[in-house]
Structure formats: C-alpha cells, structure tokens
Simulated scan of single mutants.
Amino acid sequence: MIIINIVMTLAIFVLIGVVLKLPEYITKSWLEETKNKNAHNIQIESYFKQLGGQQQQEILSIWTEFLTDIAEATKNIQMHKALILSKDLISCFMIQ
C-alpha cells in the first residue's frame, strides 16, 4: 500500500510539473511560430522591394536612353534642316 502511495505521489508530482510547464511551452512555441512568420514576411517584402527597385532602374534607364536619343534625333533633325536650307540657298544662287 505504501508503494502505491509513493508511485501515485510521484505521478501526481510529474503531472503537476507537466501542467505547470505547459503554458511556458505553448508560449515559446507560439512565439517561435510568430517569429518565423515575421521573418518570412520580411523576406517577401524585401524581395519585392528589390524587384521594384530593379524595375524602377530599368524604367529610368529606358527614359534616359529615350531622352539621349531625342537629343541625338534633334541633332539629326537640325542637320537635316541645315542641309535642306543650304540646298535651297544653293539652288537660289544657281537660278540667278
């Protein structure tokens, strides 16, 4: 009878210890899960920010190329106008 009482007392102590540690275990588990979700969300956000930055860089590059091509095209248009005007001037002198 004494052995059964000792075993029951030890079982109750173990059960009480488990019950007392259970909230701490649940809290740690929940905290770890929350940290993992937050880290995952931060990685996703960082990826899309980087991707957005690359796209902005590409758009800026396209606009820069476009603007420099306009400057080049403007030079070509001015040269074209100068050639036409000089051709007109030459033809005016030749007619007289």
Score class of each variant (00 low, 15 high):
residue 72 E to Q: 09
residue 73 A to G: 00
residue 55 Q to T: 11
residue 6 I to C: 07
residue 15 L to W: 06
residue 94 M to E: 14
residue 16 I to C: 04
residue 22 L to Y: 03
residue 76 N to P: 01
residue 40 H to K: 11
residue 51 L to Y: 15
residue 17 G to S: 12
residue 40 H to I: 12
residue 14 V to T: 09
residue 93 F to G: 13
residue 7 V to Q: 05
residue 28 K to I: 15
residue 95 I to N: 01
residue 50 Q to V: 10
residue 53 G to C: 12
residue 68 T to V: 13
residue 50 Q to N: 13
residue 82 A to G: 00
residue 81 K to A: 15
residue 24 E to H: 06
residue 76 N to R: 12
residue 48 F to I: 11
residue 95 I to D: 11
residue 18 V to W: 06
residue 16 I to Y: 04
residue 17 G to H: 05
residue 21 K to T: 06
residue 21 K to E: 08
residue 59 I to K: 07
residue 3 I to M: 00
residue 25 Y to N: 07
residue 80 H to G: 14
residue 53 G to K: 15
residue 10 L to N: 07
residue 48 F to S: 10
residue 22 L to K: 03
residue 70 I to Q: 06
residue 15 L to I: 04
residue 70 I to N: 06
residue 24 E to V: 13
residue 96 Q to T: 09
residue 7 V to F: 02
residue 41 N to S: 08
residue 64 T to Y: 09
residue 16 I to M: 04
residue 30 W to D: 09
residue 9 T to K: 06
residue 2 I to P: 03
residue 75 K to T: 08
residue 88 D to W: 12
residue 38 N to M: 13
residue 68 T to N: 13
residue 63 W to T: 01
residue 85 L to Y: 02
residue 53 G to F: 13
residue 46 S to Y: 09
residue 95 I to Q: 03
residue 61 S to W: 02
residue 16 I to P: 03
residue 78 Q to P: 01
residue 44 I to Q: 09
residue 11 A to W: 04
residue 86 S to P: 05
residue 45 E to A: 10
residue 44 I to G: 06
residue 28 K to A: 15
residue 77 I to W: 02
residue 34 T to P: 00
residue 60 L to S: 15
residue 55 Q to K: 10
residue 52 G to L: 01
residue 56 Q to A: 11
residue 26 I to G: 01
residue 75 K to Y: 01
residue 10 L to F: 02
residue 20 L to V: 12
residue 19 V to A: 15
residue 22 L to I: 04
residue 75 K to A: 00
residue 31 L to F: 05
residue 15 L to D: 02
residue 4 I to Q: 08
residue 92 C to L: 14
residue 9 T to Y: 01
residue 51 L to K: 15
residue 92 C to Y: 14
residue 58 E to A: 14
residue 32 E to S: 04
residue 82 A to P: 01
residue 92 C to P: 03
residue 68 T to S: 06
residue 77 I to Q: 11
residue 96 Q to E: 10
residue 17 G to T: 05
residue 68 T to E: 07
residue 10 L to T: 05
residue 57 Q to K: 09
residue 11 A to E: 07
residue 10 L to A: 11
residue 72 E to W: 02
residue 63 W to C: 00
residue 1 M to V: 13
residue 60 L to I: 11
residue 72 E to L: 11
residue 18 V to D: 00
residue 35 K to R: 10
